[in-house]
Write a protein that binds this DNA or RNA. Structure first.
Lengths: 188, 188
DNA sequence: AGAGTGGGAGAACGATGGTTCTCGGGTAGT
DNA sequence: ACTACCCGAGAACCATCGTTCTCCCACTCT
């Protein structure tokens, strides 16, 4: 019957994600999403009744995927829990090395729409909160002092935007070095 | 004769800056700039023959103002040069506390237009480069090791976006703490 | 004073984009 | 085979925006 409704929604989100992330939300019209996904406009509007709904779905899914990707990368790291804290920055390095890396979708969307679309601003806030909480969890698991988490999160955030603008993955390395110093100092 | 041509250009840039920074570049039409600046459309297009030229001028001036503001803040700090390095984060705190703070204009513009407007991406790169060089200069003046500059720049960058999205100036404080630790470790 | 010029206000134009509508063909149920 | 419905393709509609044009007034130069 339905060729899997959920399946089609995913296909639309796949197309939307690639386009929105690659070119910016405002630069991508519904027509581009329709062409890229192969889903007719009518159906598209049945699944997502407006562009802003689609954008929210895009951000929600991206949030889940990113955090899940980070968590599974980190949890696969063997050794003492401290290693897993530092592994955040190895994950960043891999992310930054993807050929179409263009920074954090949430920061970019916030810059585009944060002032005019409160849902977008809220999504960005929620994502960054979740990231901070995850870092805090890793820090706690390694028996390191809580304030370290915020410091490491700042380094990661800085690396994300610096890598995007400079176009190299190097900031991940530098952030890792700095993180190591902070961790060593915190252990004392 | 000319009611000071340069004066009018500045007035236009003042209006453009407030609008572009506050709402995003794409969300602001030439008409809004015209109304806010009180300069007729015809004159506006004489001064800046297209929106993209105006946007570039906006970014160029913002770059100059920001770095100049930072430099004069930092240079007014007495005491050993190391204090001036840490003062970067005090300056950030003040900046973040401005009521209409909305993050870094360059990061925001990059998110909006970086993918489609190479000049914007270049402007962002140039600005971040200049910032890094300035930090490096302060670090060198304090006789601290060069790699520290990149680390501090990452903290600052992270604080800028975290403060924007979270809506509080606190990240500046946290970044300052982390910077202190890195500086102390580097001195050893 | 009269003609010309510069400039302002805002209409006009063309393109783009979000959203809806129309049309035509295919499919299912009888 | 006939009818009723669903759906895709794309046109249509309306708003917005970048840019240009028109009209008109005030001022200047002779």
């Amino acid at each position: 019957m339905t060729v899997d409704l959920e399946d089609t929604k995913e296909r639309v989100l796949d197309a939307a994600e690639e386009l929105y992330y690659g070119r910016g939300v405002q630069a991508v019209g519904m027509d581009a999403v329709r062409t890229a996904s192969g889903v007719s406009l009518k159906r598209l509007y049945q699944l997502y009744p407006s562009k802003s709904v689609l954008v929210e779905a895009y951000l929600r899914r991206r949030d889940a995927h990113l955090l899940h990707g980070l968590a599974s990368y980190v949890e696969a790291v063997p050794g003492p829990p401290e290693e897993r804290v530092a592994a955040i920055f190895d994950w960043l390095y891999e992310w930054f090395s993807e050929p179409d890396y263009r920074g954090c979708a949430f920061i970019n969307s916030y810059g585009e729409l944060g002032a005019t679309a409160p849902e977008v601003a809220a999504a960005a806030r929620a994502h960054k909160d979740a990231f901070q909480r995850y870092v805090a969890r890793l820090v706690a698991a390694a028996d390191l002092p809580a304030p370290l988490a915020a410091h490491l999160a700042l380094l990661a955030e800085g690396a994300i935007t610096t890598a995007a603008i400079s176009g190299t993955p190097e900031p991940a390395r530098q952030a890792r070095e700095a993180a190591k110093v902070l961790i060593a100092a915190a252990r004392a």
